[in-house]
């Protein structure tokens, strides 16, 4: 009897230890980035592009990376949103046989698991084939492909929640399948759909491997889709590779900016999800 209770106690302590390790690692990450980033963060950093000797420790900022990240992630998320909405609607029972849609869901889940560097290599291969090199466009396409499975699957989950009665009402009034899906189901599932989009945006804005080759790297703010561009993750990667400590310090500031953006997106998405589950008809 004692042995059993002892075992229970030991494992309970182990559980506390492991949850502390998990939370502790998050705490360490955030405090490291904030502590190191805040000291080297300045107004100059977010309002100026790098000057000639920026990577040697001269003045300048990382405005090009911040703008570049927005130019990459926002159009990519927009494109992925349109494509994902189409797929998520099409996956519903009204359009597709459940056995086929389960296969499509499996292939989307597989796409979700593919490492982002593969998307980068794939897109660059296609771009080279078309005669374009590293460019904003290539980066956008890579991020779009990366985000599609994420956005589609979470949209799919929230569209599935829409009660059948609502659809049947729309059908009985004579609306077509597309009208029902687009005007009734989409509106009902909107907060969940937006939460999915924000999830994709958060993933897209933080991903470095897929845009490492596809978007290239430059000190200028891109003026057309065929220019190469810097982005926050790749900027951090470049600054980090510098052997000069002062420059490396700037990588922490860039990481702080990136982390704040990603955390904001995540908080808004959680808020939307809570709102969406509140108004779902049961």
């Amino acid at each position: 009897m004692n042995k059993r209770i002892l075992e229970e106690k030991i494992f309970k302590i182990l559980m506390y230890v492991s949850i502390l390790i998990v939370l502790g690692s998050l705490f360490i990450i955030i405090s490291l980035v904030v502590a190191n980033g805040a000291t080297s963060l300045s107004i100059e950093m977010i309002t100026q592009t790098p000057t000639g000797g920026y990577y040697l420790g001269k003045s300048g900022g990382i405005l090009n990376a911040i703008i570049g990240s927005l130019f990459l992630a926002l159009p990519a998320t927009g494109l992925a949103f349109i494509i994902s909405l189409g797929i998520a609607i099409y996956l519903q029972r009204d359009f597709t046989n459940p056995s086929i849609s389960s296969f499509i869901r499996l292939s989307l889940d597989i796409l979700w698991g593919i490492p982002s560097i593969i998307y980068g290599v794939f897109c660059l291969s296609i771009m080279m084939f078309l005669g374009l090199g590293a460019s904003l466009l290539a980066g956008i396409i890579a991020l779009t492909l990366l985000e599609i499975p994420i956005i589609t699957r979470s949209m799919d989950e929230s569209i599935k929640m829409v009660p059948n009665g609502l659809k049947e009402t729309a059908y009985s009034l004579g609306s077509t399948k597309f009208e029902t899906a687009y005007k009734v189901v989409r509106k009902q599932a909107m907060p969940g759909i937006l939460a999915g989009v924000l999830l994709g945006l958060g993933r897209g804005i933080g991903d470095a491997a897929s845009i490492l080759f596809t978007a290239g790297f430059t000190d200028n703010i891109p003026t057309s889709v065929f220019d190469s561009t810097a982005a926050l993750p790749t900027m951090i990667f470049h600054l980090f590779s510098s052997p000069i400590p002062g420059v490396r310090q700037k990588a922490y500031a860039a990481a702080l900016i990136l982390l704040v953006i990603v955390l904001c997106i995540s908080i808004i998405s959680r808020f939307l999800l809570r709102k969406s589950s509140k108004f779902i008809l049961k």
């Binding site: 949850i19 998990v22 939370l23 690692s25 998050l26 360490i28 990450i29 490291l32 980035v33 190191n36 958060g202 993933r203 804005i205 933080g206 991903d207 470095a208 491997a209 993750p233 951090i236 990667f237 980090f240 990588a251 922490y252 990481a255 990136l258 982390l259 990603v262 955390l263 997106i265 995540s266 959680r270």
Partner: peptide
């Protein structure tokens, strides 16, 4: 606890690398 896990899942990999390098 759940939101903390979501935040950990959302931290960009480049930030993980940076923190691993620092710590």
């Amino acid at each position: 606890l759940r939101p903390f896990l979501d935040v950990l899942a959302g931290v960009p990999s480049v930030v993980f690398g940076l923190c691993a390098f620092l710590f």
